[in-house]
Design a protein around this nucleic acid. Sequence first.
DNA 1: TCTGGGGTCCTAGGACCC
DNA 2: TCTGGGGTCCTAGGACCC
Length: 425
Amino acid sequence: MSSTQHTRKIALIDCNSFYVSCERLFNPKIRKRPVVVLSNNDGCIISRSNEAKALGIKMGEPYFKEKEIIVKNNVQVFSSNYSLYGDISRRVMRTLKRFNSDIEIYSIDEAFLDLSNFSDNEIEDVGHEIRSTVLKWTGIPTSIGIAKTKTLSKVANHIAKKKQSGVVSLIGIENIDPILEKVEVNDIWGIGKQLTKFYHKNGIYNAKQLKNKSNTWIKKSSSVLGSRTAMELRGISCIDLETTTSKRKSCVVSRSFGQRVESFQELKEAVANYSLNASEKIRSEALVAKSLTIFIRTSPFQSRYGFYSNSKTIDFPIATNNSIEIVKAALSGLETIFKNGYRYQKAGVMLSHLTGSNGGKNLFSSDRDEKINSLMKSIDNTNYRYGRSTLSLASAGVHKKWNMRRQHSSKIDTADFYCLPTIRN
DNA sequence: TCTGGGGTCCTAGGACCC
DNA sequence: TCTGGGGTCCTAGGACCC
């Protein structure tokens, strides 16, 4: 039957050790060396080269705990540089779009691509072509998994990561049970710690066992998400490709401080900055927020100082993206939850119930609002052109306690991105 | 001494209504 | 006097993702 030639085919393209690969683009000397990239504040290890993985350095582990191995093996360490990674990510995604515009950009380093238009016979070759094109045009190595559903393409991708070729297709394989049997249940997309514990208790250890478990049992014992996962393992698609970028529903800006903060004044500065940052973000997406939550907390790892965590949510009478209003609300919220005598470790601002801003007009908009809107626009433009915090409402010093630690920055400016050397095969 | 940040979705339970 | 039960909407918190 020729119709089987055009079964649904979803590819998951995942960049290998993405942040490490980005740093390597600018620093060819570290190509074969062990490399790690740290989270904000140089807190945790969030990206590892294969060489670093081989040394036993764990994902998500605090940097200080791995320091010994790192020093001993001369592992190259980088603070994260998100604007750089964002730029390279856009380059990768643009390249992928050439193969099909039906693409779901799932994260900074992953995308689902609909390849149903290709025949079963050629699909693996297409995978290899995508892989080599992305490598040639961006310098980023990828792994590609292709299958009938998103969950299965994740499985295929998981296997592809361990293969030299980097491409694995499950299309056209009659019985995938022997493959699924080798996939541990906790490695399945959508199954985290809690579900793993539960499935283990019920004798389910791998993807094959979950796939062949009765649907009624799964439905009864977990949420709809659990049964959706099992259906997808059976090749029945339940999770659609989200190709249109839907407007987001919330926006969080939060940071751990470089050093503990105790003074109200310093906390206020940090919160004002995060508020400005969040307002700017939602304005750039033409959104307004109906409510704001501000939260502060001390370190959960240092109980000897006493743990304190609190938040306050404030509703705006009229949804807004006005920096002044948002900062004001955040600071008044902060006042209600701030307690003296604690060593604060983190603060954040969340804007939620976001909706489209209708070009900044609403029933109650006035001349004054129009003026504020154009003021906001000029702030955003200036910041865009000359860098963040060129103009800001709070006196945002650069040497404050709460600023992040970044001791291992490669100092690559995004501007340098345009000087990237051409990459040869 | 040092432990990231930013999202989505689901569910349970409370408030409220008829 | 009897004091039910079902529906909706909202929120907080949990689980999961990268």
